[in-house]
Design a protein around this nucleic acid. Structure first.
Length: 706
DNA sequence: ACGAAATCTTTTTTT
DNA sequence: AAGATTTCGT
């Protein structure tokens, strides 16, 4: 039953159980099916028990889906542990909390928590040389992914900037441990350390997990790779599945070398290639292949389609992003009319900001849509506030969460009050609840502020007792909402606040569902699960899907629109120099997007597009690369003038501004790659204009030297 | 302490 | 162009 409908290579991968296995699985070659069948087979043969299998997927959704299919094949029974790398690590850290020496109820900080913390630290340390929050964040993350400690980073620093970064890193890590919090990278590094330093723990998991399966292995980083190596004992058999052409997370430390070096790292590994594509038509596959062939750093393989050639891939030039959205949505409507449900179509784009035009077009045309990822539900302000309250209850050391809600709703504690409060909190080394009780005695706290903090402390202490009693998460949420005035602060008459109340309602339903599904989880369990939900996890597959190319990984649709095939956007280019973006990775990103499509693929390109106020235009070089594979000649581009940026300016130049019309340059000053111009448009005062924010066209330069 | 207005900086992608 | 942050007035 299980082996039915498998081709010989798939069958080989499913049945091989004599050692390690590397499955090089091209897009649409049925790798999920192989993983599922393999797990089902192991369980049915009784070779190993469910508890002996560990499966690592890329999203929790994929894990759930896999679990569902396995139990369908076998009839309900215990399922193996399946989840993302990060959720597996958190599971491990919580499970071994007693032995590893940190509390079971640590908080996991997401990107916005990290940024909020770094913002404060950067301000406090007042470092030289303009270090931005996001620069510090990615620097720290990079160090962590390379297993470099703050101390090491300081030693290795070769310039002032790196020294400054290292000191931020040290302060950041110190706060994290004071708060008993992990960031995403910590989940991996602490797991690795835990396994490395405790022989008995390591041996326990080595003998427990006799089969380990990892999906999307091309997107794992060094730490993940080391965890896998450490976890694999003599009797463990490791199966990894991946595709070097689909590696799209190099920017966050993923190493394609993990998959390429697998045979070296796991000697004796068998290699199986899955090169039959069951998903896409011949035309789509040919275009995708022609594109990715331009990459030099690849193993090289050719996918063989089983479907007909089908309709050619179509490139659609449009004038502007709003036309692009309008055209795509209308085309989607036409396909819906001829029988394809909207839920089987997707619009994919490079940056989240591109979703706005498509959302607007969908609303105008009455098309049901779903934005996947991006502004995630749990990142909404009101939800983050509520979650912050909950986190403090579970982990009273979590000062970051307290800082977020210390004056929400307003309780008379301002910037200075908050500052002195936390200064004293960290100085005395007390937890949040104790600190709230003592606040009125501290300097810098107003009597009114002190009193309301004391009251907050009492309310939280009451709720914390519910947590230690093990009350259901839902009851605690309701208690917090009512007792803190969090719900009351929103006025149901106000339209904007009404939607916040609706979001809170949705959160309550979500919690209630958790309580039903996981009766023994309680609030700590809920928070542990909630913090690692991925952007695909909430995708309900209703309506036209709008998402980034990264988000689309692992999904498939009948009809795919890929938007914004313009130079600078796809491939993306960051004009703030530093590291040039990896062209080959950009190409793989488009490749991933194209291979999501089953029957129909559209690529749209705008004549002009405003990005950060700048105007960009020009078709993506990738379109030229694909061109030979397009059966249809590319539609002629309407002759539309692109606003071009003149190369330089000098006093006396006559220019044209889209709003103010014609004007004369009074003074021109270079500012980096841009020009700061003072221009007389005939108004009372000359206007100061920064090029790059406005598409200026030069009418005629003055011949003289100026 | 708080809200409104002025100013500044910023954008890739995500667990 | 939009959002975040700082400054300013109450």
């Amino acid at each position: 039953m299980i082996d039915l409908h498998l081709n010989p290579q798939q069958k080989e991968a499913v049945e091989y159980d004599e050692g390690h296995l590397l499955v090089l699985a091209g897009a649409g070659s049925g790798k999920t099916r192989v993983l599922t069948a393999k797990i089902a087979r192991l369980l049915r043969e009784g070779t190993v028990k469910p508890g002996n299998i560990l499966a690592m997927t890329f999203t929790n959704k994929a894990a759930r889906e896999m679990g569902r299919r396995v139990s369908e094949m076998l009839g309900g029974r215990d399922l193996p542990r399946m989840g993302t790398f990060h959720s597996t690590c958190l599971w491990f850290l919580r499970r071994e909390a007693g032995r590893l020496g940190y509390g079971e109820n640590c908080t996991v900080y997401d990107g916005s928590d990290q940024k909020a913390l770094l913002r404060k630290l950067l301000k406090k340390l007042s470092l030289p040389g303009g270090i931005t929050v996001s620069a510090a964040l990615s620097w720290i993350s990079e160090k962590k992914s390379d297993l470099v400690s703050p101390e090491q980073a300081l030693v290795e620093a070769v310039n002032g900037r790196q020294e400054a970064m290292a000191s931020v890193y040290a302060a950041y890590q110190k706060t994290l441990s004071e708060n008993r919090a992990f960031d995403f990278d910590d989940l991996l590094t602490y797991t690795l350390e835990g396994l490395r330093q405790n022989i008995d723990i390591r041996e326990y998991y080595r003998s427990k997990f006799l089969r380990i399966l990892v999906d999307e292995y091309q997107d794992t980083n060094l730490v993940q790779h080391l965890i896998l190596k450490t976890l694999a004992g003599d009797s463990t058999r490791v199966t990894v599945v991946g595709d070097d052409d689909q590696a799209i997370y190099g920017w966050r430390g993923a190493r394609v070398s993990n998959i390429l070096d697998f045979p070296k790292d796991f000697p004796g590994a068998k290699i199986v290639r899955l090169e039959t594509n069951y998903r896409s038509t011949g035309s789509i596959l040919r275009a995708a292949d022609v594109l990715v062939t331009n990459n030099r750093n690849r193993h090289g393989k050719t996918l063989i389609p089983v479907l007909e050639m089908g309709e050619p891939v179509r490139v659609q030039p449009v004038a502007s992003p709003s036309d692009e959205a309008e055209w795509s949505v209308r085309t989607a409507l036409a396909f819906q009319a001829s029988g394809t449900p909207l839920s089987r179509m997707a619009v994919l784009y490079r940056t989240n900001a591109q979703s706005r035009e498509f959302e607007a077009a969908c609303r105008r045309c009455g098309v049901a849509y779903e934005v996947v990822g991006a502004q995630r539900f749990f990142e909404r302000e009101e939800i983050k506030d509520l979650v912050s309250y909950l986190r403090i209850l579970v982990n009273p050391r979590d000062g970051e969460s307290l800082s977020r809600i210390i004056n929400k709703p307003a309780r008379g504690v301002g910037r200075k009050g908050e500052e002195s409060f936390f200064l004293n909190l960290y100085r005395e080394g007390v937890d949040c609840l104790t600190a709230l009780g003592r606040a009125s005695e501290w300097p810098g706290i107003t009597p009114r502020g002190g009193a309301s903090l004391k009251e907050l402390g009492a309310i939280l202490a009451g709720a914390a007792r519910m947590v230690s009693r093990g009350d259901p998460a839902g009851e605690i949420v309701d208690h917090v909402l009512l007792s803190t005035g969090l719900q009351e602060q929103y006025n149901p008459e106000d339209v904007a606040e009404q939607s916040k109340l609706e979001n809170i309602e949705e959160f309550r339903r979500f919690v209630a569902q958790y309580d039903v599904e996981t009766p023994r989880g309680g609030l700590p369990g809920f928070l542990a699960e909630q913090c690692l939900l991925t952007s695909q996890d909430s995708y309900s597959e209703e309506g036209l899907a709008l998402m980034t190319l990264h988000c689309a990984k692992g999904l498939e649709f009948d009809i795919v629109f890929i938007a914004g095939l313009e130079e600078g956007l796809l491939p993306h280019i960051r004009q703030n120099e530093s590291a040039p973006s990896d062209l080959e990775e950009e190409r793989r990103l488009l490749y991933v997007g194209m291979t999501r499509a089953r029957t129909t693929l559209f690529l749209t390109t705008c004549m002009t597009r405003a990005m950060q106020g700048r105007y960009h235009c020009g078709p993506s070089r990738f379109l030229a690369e694909i061109a030979p594979a397009l059966a249809e000649p590319q539609a002629p581009r309407p002759a539309m003038p692109c606003p071009t940026e003149p190369e330089g300016f000098k006093r006396g130049d006559v220019i044209r501004h889209p709003r103010y019309g014609r004007g004369m340059v009074l003074s021109a000053r270079r500012r980096g790659a841009e020009w700061e111009l003072s221009i007389d448009f005939g108004f009372d005062e000359p206007k100061t204009i920064l090029t790059g924010y406005v598409p200026l066209t030069k009418e005629r330069g003055r011949a003289s030297q100026g």
